[in-house]
Amino acid sequence: MKSYSITNDINNKLVIFLKKRAVTVLLLAFIVFMVISKPSFYSWGNITNILTEMSVYGIVAFAMTVAIIGGEFDLSASSIFGWATVFFISITNTLGLIPAFFLTLISGILMGMVNGFLVSKVKLNAFVVTLATMTIIKGLTFFYTGGSPINTSNETLIAIGAFNVAGITLTPIIFVIALIVFILILAKTRFGRNIYATGGNYHVAKLTGINVDYYKFIIFVIVGFCSALAGILLCVRVQAGSALYGKDLALYAVTATVIGGTSLSGGNGGVAKTVIGLLVMSVLFNALTLLGVEGYFQQLIRGIVLIAVIIIDTVIKKKNK
């Protein structure tokens, strides 16, 4: 009889695991399928390619995860990213690389501060605020460049862009550092726990003495900073800036976060989960490209996957309750 109960127990645990990690299991199954059907998928060149592709947007996705945990949303990340590429390249051409680096980060922080102020102090809806600042910053970027892309031939920048360890460039390295920093901040510090508390229940958090408005504010500063940083990292790779870069970034970041399993209602989730979401998106698209699926069709599949994941996610959560 005892052996029966043990297998039963294992079965139960397996079911719970499958339910909780459905997306991860699907991802692994998909990877196995790809490795068997397309050997080129499993080459070092393609793996580093996937890593580099997901790293730039991934850094913004981490910041977006923090924002969503804190119960907010930031659509302006796209525009801040585009602005950062343009501003960084133009300052590199005039004042040099180091001032460009710092000034770009500062500009990203300032834009985040404007968003944060409007949401936390004026108490405006984050969706509308960031929709508006998205338009404003995009207009500013187009105005600044006259609409055309700009590039640079700064040799140091090209050298940094070419730097790699066994095919791994600077971007994935910074991506991993960002991941570790975010995990530590969210899990191990009071700052991180307070963000969860603020997103989980704003009023309760306020009553327990947490300075909730400060956390609402700082969330947007983090997104602004990370968007600017990601913009710089893209510049390192392509040595060019354009207002059109990062057009779909904000929605990409939200999608990766949700697919990873961070709930849109705030108060739970984490950046490690978002890595799964990023992997799903980038592996899927890499695979579709390798399998020779057309551009329109890829877009179609992306939309369907997005809808399917959010529905599966909500249904499973409801059942677990």
Partner: peptide, 29 residues
């Protein structure tokens, strides 16, 4: 889809973004 999962603003946002992507792809197609 949104009403069956009892979706609030966030879910509506994601699902209609998903259909936007699909419909835009169909228009290109």
């Amino acid at each position: 889809l949104i009403s069956l999962i009892n979706g609030k603003m966030g879910e509506a946002f994601i699902i209609t973004y998903g259909t936007q992507t699909v419909v835009a792809a169909l228009a290109l197609f």
